[in-house]
């Protein structure tokens, strides 16, 4: 399953989500949006808006599902944990 996590380095829920995925040995791609610059940053913000409808983080995209925030029960459901 392709899993992508859009995150900010400053965001507590992003840290919680990363910890949760790591604790369950889930492999995922992480995009730390606040570290990006220029066009790449803008392009990624647009992408986040498109998938989540907003600019709140973290945004987890897995198996066609989108989870905004550290919603542990939804993440567990989607990943079968």
């Amino acid at each position: 399953m392709d899993i992508r996590l859009y995150a900010l380095t400053t965001c507590p829920y992003c840290r919680m989500t990363k910890r949760y995925l790591d604790d369950h040995s889930i492999s995922y791609e992480i995009v730390e949006v606040d570290l990006l610059e220029g066009e790449e940053r803008q392009h990624t913000i647009d992408e986040v808006k498109q998938v989540s409808g907003g600019t709140s983080f973290p945004v987890l995209v897995a198996d066609g599902e989108v989870v905004v925030g550290f919603n542990k029960s939804r993440i567990a459901d989607i990943l079968g944990l």
Partner: peptide
């Protein structure tokens, strides 16, 4: 806000 991003 640490949970949201500046758009510029």
């Amino acid at each position: 806000c640490p949970c949201r991003i500046r758009t510029g």
